[in-house]
């Protein structure tokens, strides 16, 4: 078909394009789409049928526990743990990224070593280490290095399961975020730094005012991804007997033996929260790509006083 059309093209067929408009068009058929629809429809029907008829799903039990105090309390703890661990990860991650890019070789290598260690060992193992830290350091003291201590305390009173969970998740997350932040900072054209230097700005101001606002576009999507991932990773903390969502469910089914319904209950909540976070991610990403949308029309809310004055005079002069 294509070749014959190409052969016809150079010939002076002035009537050909006009004729093409009038001829009926036979749409391309997609038979395999119909086959795939059928296969998926059958599989879906089988699954839905089993959801309804298989009593082991225990939907009545799910309904009973979905809004129970213990599950909701676990959900609240999961959300808090996610927030605090991410906050720790972000703060430490920024510091590590800046250290990594520092001209100071000691800082740069220290950061490298940290990232190497915390990315190189499983987060589950790290959580266990924090949980069992008292076996390694039974007591913690503050004092002169290698000298006498002034303040001494039992490790277990300081590193409670909550603290172990926050440290385990946050310190691990920091290593990943540090690499995301470093990539974002390095993605900005070197000319931006030079232009800012030429204006007399110092490194800290260049980072804050010029580099970071631009790097955010590169940094935010993977950071939001990691937040969603963190929400689910908090379930590992159940091993430290910290009553987050999964452990709350486990505590219930260890007594009632309604294992599957409670795992479903927990899964529903994880899905709900990750869905909400995904929506939030969309809006945050849109916010940071705003300078792509060219002219600042309709952005009067963010204009400075002078710009607003100008806008008013423009309108007055041009009668727009």
């Amino acid at each position: 078909m294509a070749t014959s059309a190409a052969q016809q093209a150079p010939s002076p067929g002035a009537g050909a394009p006009a004729a093409a408009d009038d001829l009926p068009v036979v749409r391309l058929r997609h038979p395999w789409r119909w086959v795939s629809y059928a296969v998926i429809a059958v599989l879906a029907a089988m699954f839905v049928h089993s959801l309804v008829t298989n009593p082991h799903f225990g939907w009545d039990v799910v309904g009973e526990y979905l809004f129970s105090v213990r599950i909701l309390d676990g959900l609240a703890k999961t959300l808090q743990l996610t927030a605090i661990a991410m906050l720790l990860g972000i703060l430490l991650g920024v510091a590590l990224a800046i250290m990594r890019l520092s001209a100071n070789p000691v800082l740069s290598r220290t950061s490298w070593l940290y990232i190497w260690f915390f990315r190189g060992t499983p987060v589950f193992v790290q959580l266990l280490f924090w949980g069992f830290i008292s076996a390694l350091y039974p007591s913690i003291s503050i004092g002169v290095p290698f000298g006498p201590g002034f303040l001494e305390t039992e490790t277990n009173t300081l590193i409670t399961p909550v603290v172990a969970a926050i440290l385990g998740l946050g310190l691990n997350e920091a290593a990943y975020l540090a690499e995301i932040f470093r990539g974002g900072i390095q993605s900005i054209d070197r000319g931006q730094t030079e232009a800012a230097q030429a204006l007399g700005m110092k490194r800290s101001r260049i980072l804050r005012q010029i580099i970071m606002p631009q790097a955010m576009r590169v940094i935010v999507p993977p950071t939001a991804n990691n937040t969603i991932s963190m929400l689910k990773t908090t379930s590992l903390v159940s091993v430290l007997s910290f009553p987050e969502l999964l452990y709350a469910a486990q505590l219930i089914y260890s007594v009632s033996f309604e294992t599957i319904p409670l795992l479903i209950t927990a899964s529903i909540w994880y899905l709900v929260v990750t869905s909400v976070l995904t929506v939030g991610q969309y809006y945050i990403e849109r916010h940071y790509s705003r300078s792509d949308r060219l002219e600042g029309l309709g952005r009067l809310g963010r204009l400075s006083a002078l710009q607003r004055r100008r806008t008013v005079t423009d309108v007055g002069q041009d009668g727009r």
Partner: peptide
């Protein structure tokens, strides 16, 4: 500079 290097996240002002 040859390639301007304006700050793209800021308005002209």
């Amino acid at each position: 500079f040859q390639r301007f290097h304006l700050f793209p996240h800021m308005t002209v002002l």
